[in-house]
């Protein structure tokens, strides 16, 4: 089992670049430990800014710095950075078009036991609704590193959500196909598939497990790792939908306004097919460690496979 969470991959990637580029800054809101950013703060104190527990300040300060030519990366729990500082993200970052990268750590239900205040099951919906804001949910540490490498090259706003816990590797150091704003496809989009499973973030792993379980039952599945929720890779969504009888989306998010909604709109407009969106409930999420909570709601390999079998019947 991999022990490196995606947040650590972000820290390592930024550290590798911060040596050469003194304009890269990390900003934390008393969150450097939870963000795995302590090594960055220790190694690059001159490129580290602590703002205290003040997420609005975090985002506005970053916007001001970006306007003056710096490249700030803001780290705060996804539940806070996506909604507590929502207006700062909208006005100071997206509307003013500043090169700020917002990193939502411990996203989704990473803090499963801590209750709804600490869950970010609205962040995709909230951030996606802002013009000029991009939304990314990388699946594993290798893809996370590739995404950050790519974001370091551009000057546009973005929101990245990662979970707290290490996730099993999907890719590897040498095998991590990555094209910016293009989903990574597992399977054959040209084949006649029974089901197309489109997942993002921590749900990609169970989607791949489901595909395997389905294959054992003679059901052919293609999986799209849709780390780029906005801009959504519509081309892959359409191809995947056209190749299959059924589309299933899986995400660690509320059922409204997430990746599944965006996929359903794209499929509905371009190649109408049945779309099943698997997500957290529109309700208080049950208390527990995230893995147990996922199991409870069927957001695991078995649950996704079961849903596919049921609907395909």
């Amino acid at each position: 089992m991999n022990k490196i969470p995606n947040r650590q991959a972000i820290c390592e990637t930024l550290m590798a670049h911060a040596k050469e580029d003194r304009h890269i800054y990390a900003l934390c809101s008393d969150s450097r430990g939870s963000a795995s950013m302590t090594p960055f703060f220790n190694a690059f104190p001159e490129q580290s800014i602590e703002v205290g527990i003040a997420e609005q300040n975090l985002v506005s300060i970053a916007a001001g710095m970006a306007h003056c030519g710096e490249k700030p990366y803001c780290f705060s729990p996804a539940c806070f950075i996506s909604t507590r500082s929502y207006e700062q993200a909208k006005v100071d970052v997206a509307y003013s078009n500043t090169n700020v990268k917002l990193i939502g750590i411990s996203g989704g239900i990473s803090y499963g036991e801590l209750g709804m205040s600490h869950h970010s099951a609205q962040d995709i919906a909230a951030m996606s609704a802002i013009p000029n804001m991009r939304v990314y949910l990388p699946s594993d540490r290798f893809q996370t590193a590739k995404l950050i490498e790519s974001l370091l090259q551009d000057k546009k706003p973005a929101y990245v959500r990662v979970g707290r816990n290490p996730v099993e590797d999907i890719y590897s150091e040498t095998e991590c196909p990555f094209e910016m704003d293009r989903a990574t496809v597992h399977g054959d989009l040209e084949a006649e598939n029974d089901v197309a499973i489109i997942a993002c973030g921590e749900m990609v792993r169970p989607a791949l497990e489901a595909a395997k379980l389905l294959q054992d039952k003679g059901i052919k599945a293609v999986v799209a790792d849709m780390y780029c929720v906005k801009p959504l890779d519509q081309d892959t969504v359409i191809k995947a939908a056209k190749s299959a009888k059924l589309v299933i989306t899986v995400e660690e998010h509320a059922p409204y306004g997430g990746m599944g909604s965006a996929v359903a709109v794209t499929v509905g407009e371009n190649c109408p097919k049945k779309v099943i969106t698997m997500a957290l409930p529109d309700d208080h999420v049950i208390t527990g460690k995230s893995a147990a909570v996922f199991d409870y709601y069927g957001l695991n390999g078995e649950g996704i496979a079961k849903k596919a079998v049921e609907v395909l019947k």
């Binding site: 001159e46 506005s60 916007a63 710095m65 306007h67 003056c68 710096e70 006005v91 100071d92 003013s96």
Partner: peptide, 25 residues
């Protein structure tokens, strides 16, 4: 015009970021 504004309470925190960056540079 450096930054968009309109929603109140944004200018000072953004200025803090600008002042920090200018001092760093």
């Amino acid at each position: 015009i450096e930054m968009n504004s309109g929603s109140l309470g944004h200018g000072l925190p953004v200025s803090v970021g600008m002042a920090l960056a200018c001092r760093k540079e």
